[in-house]
Design a binder for these strands. Sequence first.
DNA 1: CTCTACGAATTTTTT
DNA 2: ATTCGTAGAG
Length: 721
Amino acid sequence: MDVTEIIDPLNEMQRQAVTAPNQPMLVLAGAGSGKTRVLVHRIAWQIQVEGLSPQSILAVTFTNKAAAEMRLRIESLLDISARAMWIGTFHGLAHRLLRRHSKEAGLPETFQVIDSDDQYRLIKRLLKSLNIDDGKWPPRQIQWFINGQKDEGIRAASVVETGDLFQRQMLLVYRAYEEICQRSGLVDFAELLLKAHELLRDNPDLLNFYQKRFKQVHVDEFQDTNTIQYAWLRLLTQNQQNLFVVGDDDQSIYGWRGAKIENLFSFQSHYPDHQVIRLEQNYRSTGNILKAANSLIDNNQGRMGKELWTASGDGEPISLYAAFNEQDEAYFVIERIRKWVNEGGLRSDVAILYRSNAQSRQFEEKLMSTGMPYRVYGGLRFFERAEIKNALAYLRLISNRLDDAAFERVINMPTRGIGAKTMDDIRLKAQHTNKSLWQAALDLLSESAFTARASNALQGFVKLINDLAESSQDLELYEKVKSVIEKTGLIETYKKEKGEKGEARVENLEELVNAARSFDYDQDNDENLGELEMFLSYAALEAGEMQGNDSDDCVQLMTLHSAKGLEFPLVFLVGLEDGLFPSQQSVDDPGRLEEERRLCYVGMTRAMSDLYLTYAESRRLYGRETIARPSRFLREIPAETMQEVRVRAQVSRPVTAGASISGQIQQNNTFKLGQHVGHAKFGEGVVLQVEGEGAQERVQINFRDAGIKWLMLAYAKLEVL
DNA sequence: CTCTACGAATTTTTT
DNA sequence: ATTCGTAGAG
């Protein structure tokens, strides 16, 4: 292969990064500057030119999606299989290490990965068994504490005690939690990273082996690494100084979950011989958008310094729309999307970005009633659905009877007459004898400690699990899954469940069988573990996307956080109000405010050619009408890049769904949004909405004294003030 | 065990 | 407003 293929598509700075000699490298890659391209080409360069073998390449990302994309692009560039390379998420690679060296890591060979929901339930149950009031000590907070400590690399045993009551309580649970996980063979996400770090730290031979094996270590989105992830990277690269990281301090938006933007600075002192390369040429957005984004982010302190520029022109100005309320905001956005589509634009090229999920609703309703296809990113993923997790819990229990989390989950699902009392007895026994719930249940059964009824029910359950384990022993994976959802009565229960919900659940369970059928076992077969166990790990580590409506041409709705890394020709950044964005909880803390600003920066730089910023003067939030001021971020954007859209003068909206589908209806011109009116009985008020036409026309009015009312225009005698 | 009612909370999310 | 979880009744 010709080296020009690797080099030619790169600009000068990218080329410098790709072809740099082996030394620590920090590539500060602005939004849209070709960061993934640099990583991919760098790896290709090392294989093609430096002669590294694929197995000496390690590349770490944060999401499975990013890892998959990188792998794909390397394969298509080099036209070789990237299978031998270690490309994956921090968690995925940590998992692989722990599977290979479970003994050295002090884990049972069959350990299983639990997701945050499992973790939450486990903690909740733990509190109950420790007799801790979960009202006073919210499980969420404890989960937060435990994960926070683990992210910092701190074990319960090594927490520095302050004598603080709060801390003492947290620590108590942390210790108990560690114990129960160890006993049940369960590993949570943070534990994967922590254990992987300890594994290398405490086993010099292993560390040495991997240090030698990985000639180059690449990290994507380095600004998002937390303490333990960076520590792990340092262990691997401290001898060979072969760490190549790509990141952007201006796009660090995960500080709230432990990401340490400081790692970017630490890198420079930990690797004194490093080289820094800045990628500032942007290939995505127009000049106006970049100018605006640059000015905004310039308000942050202590940046590493970077200014995006583009070789293409200024483009259209950014549009700013001041909506009357959140309804008006949604209507405005959807009108503009319709216009875009009418002019031949693709819906899938349009994104509506918001700060919090609750904001999607307004847009969904209006999109739905307009009949415009859309897709909301972010809800429950496939493997996180309750029915799926129930089925998986059965499989887990079959694989490992010590799995207390799975036991608790399915002991009475579907209901089989094992109630709270029986469970309490089992928990108590387990706690006293320091055994698993399963063993405790067996012990209690042999002691005939239950009423006949409870005893029967419990025996039935024990037999069910044992029989399932035995009968499915030699079955194909998908047959195992099938047999589980049928013989446990799970699918039967959901079939009886009324309505669409039950139907959807049955479908999901059937889909689970399909997922098992198409599970690619060979790929991960190097980890001497059963197929079922690998499938379960896969389910936990890769929760799977939502239903794949990818083929349809849909408007994309998502939070700003989930938009990172994506780009769209037309972007609506909505809800730009103080208190909403930046969120109320951040406005008083300069650090958090800066993170919000970076979030805004990320949002703006998603736009390729057209960017709309909108805010509502009044918004219904948590059931209350609130008056908001435009976001402070708007004032940080230069006026010459922006153009205010005024539609209220000509168009009276919102319009109802039916009306807007039928198209160009004539609206009355008397009662526009925001119009002050008087009513004989209700007094003075302001028009909020107008809908319907002719005799059906109604207006919604916010009366100063009487509150918000809908009035039929034909009957209500309204007076224009 | 299931159903109803009431109260509390309510940024962001991946693994 | 809405959702979610728990407590108490049936």
